[in-house]
Design a protein around this nucleic acid. Sequence first.
DNA 1: TTGTAGGCGTTATCAA
DNA 2: TTGATAACGCCTACAA
Lengths: 340, 340
Amino acid sequence: MPSRVTLNDVAREAGVSLATASRAINGNKNRKVREDIRERVLAAATRLHYTPDATAQAMARGATTTLGLVVHSITDPYFSAIASGVMVAAERRGLVVTLASTQSNANREVELVELLHSQRARSVIVVGGRRDDDVALAAMTDVLGRFRRAGNSTVLVGQPLLGTDTVTIDNTGPATQLARDLHGRGYQDVVVLAGPADHLTARERAGAFADAFRELGGTVDVAHSRFTRDGGHHAVRTVLRRYRPELVFAVNDVMALGALAGLTEAGLSVPHDVGLAGFDDIDGLQDVTPHLTTVHLPLHDIGIAATDLAFAAPAPDPRVVRVSGTVALRASTPGPRRAV
Amino acid sequence: MPSRVTLNDVAREAGVSLATASRAINGNKNRKVREDIRERVLAAATRLHYTPDATAQAMARGATTTLGLVVHSITDPYFSAIASGVMVAAERRGLVVTLASTQSNANREVELVELLHSQRARSVIVVGGRRDDDVALAAMTDVLGRFRRAGNSTVLVGQPLLGTDTVTIDNTGPATQLARDLHGRGYQDVVVLAGPADHLTARERAGAFADAFRELGGTVDVAHSRFTRDGGHHAVRTVLRRYRPELVFAVNDVMALGALAGLTEAGLSVPHDVGLAGFDDIDGLQDVTPHLTTVHLPLHDIGIAATDLAFAAPAPDPRVVRVSGTVALRASTPGPRRAV
DNA sequence: TTGTAGGCGTTATCAA
DNA sequence: TTGATAACGCCTACAA
């Protein structure tokens, strides 16, 4: 029972040499194999249910057909949207995606890149904002560098700090614009659910928003918490123990959703009692009530852009592709309730 | 510039043979390499930044460390929840997950299993309900069978129709219970958004629900559409052109969300004007208003169970692991509005 | 156009 | 315990 049929078997079955069988089966370069022979080989291959061994091909060719993708969490709509973009772009290139999830653990992230290096992935794409942590940054810069020196490409979706090609999202521009728009709607006081203090994406968004809002004469309160739905929930509950805010800006949508739940549980109505805004415009946001004001990010396209970058001609210096978002003012921030 | 350092380099650097270096680096079986030598090798390895070549190991060992996972859509919370369970269970076993998304294309699904076969994945897990399509079923049965005959394992999450180990979800039990519970709350008429007519999961849920509801004396209308949010949206809009239902049951949550949007756009309030129920209890449902009645499924655990099954001792006959769900009655189905 | 043979990086068998 | 050496399945000069 030849459960493991090799190219050799196919060659024998077709009555040709291994080399000819190999050439027939992948029409490598200029197809220099006679048509009838080619057909004979292909017939033998299907007859025997031959399946090429990609690991052997990888060894012989010195390159796999695998793309490594590292995200924080696959159930987070932010990451799954980017991942789906990567997968679409990878499929176009005939690549297979090896996906790994870090649960935001920096050490694990490094390990995973090493693992992907071991797997001889053609390229690895790391998705997610960096932390303000020199040790972690150095460690990532290091593994990515080694991987690149081994002849592969790396792309980061996040802050361009790791000496690699990067797709970077403009957080400050839209955050600033959002602050202006919301102030323009009449809000004077805001509490910013700012996420972790060392989280660069969170910091950029919170900082830009707060600066702009203050500059317009508004007052800004800042509450830190985790970058998750529960983080948003917890932060808003803590704030509510002190006072009722006029407007809440969460640095991402999932936090905003947590905040929405917290506000509702406290008997407050959004937007009647409190305005609420987020960031990212994740999928599924359309189904929450009220429609959340946010910053729309082309997440799927970001995944595609990252993949394109990974397979662009190698450049001497790290490239940075900037992508921006657009403010989406929606029902959750109609403006503050007029003096009641 | 030895950008490609091999075990040979390490052996030379450490002054030992290739074989010894190999043994030192993975303490294979009973570690039979002298401690000082082992350390010398390890030191050389790190000094040279040696990274084992997984493709070469796979060839030599005849087995990779890869788990293939095939889903319909990675951005769908149903699939990403199961996928995250698989990834957690895979990581525990030191495996890497190669993820592929089919966009519900049956041919593509077969191709992907073939691709994973080529990659010599240890096992492949296919997630998603089957269609009533003999050709497609036969094709999948076939590829999976070949893959298994090559010495690997396969697991399907869905209907146990492919001659493979299967984690199957009990749709009829909870759907029946849901019908009873809703009828118990006073609903007499329901429209079932039944999804595609040939979609087995959809059919099981819709069928069991409708049967039970009718048996209790209720009337049931059935509307078919795609299995997606848009499908739910479209179906409910179509129904609304004819009449206003008392209760809507969508065979999955994303369809229910689409329906909710459709109802709301039509100026109807859920649950005031219309009751609404779904199925799956996907992540994020907690953030929609009103809280949706649904059937809770342990999606993450289903992913874990599928992986456990994939790595259980091989059995002569296909195994079937049944998992069930529990009805979660929530605010979207308080009972019909009393005569107004 | 086809065949021969060497090599890809590791593991594993078998002596030493 | 360690060291040669033959696989593993395929690709690819190079030769025929």
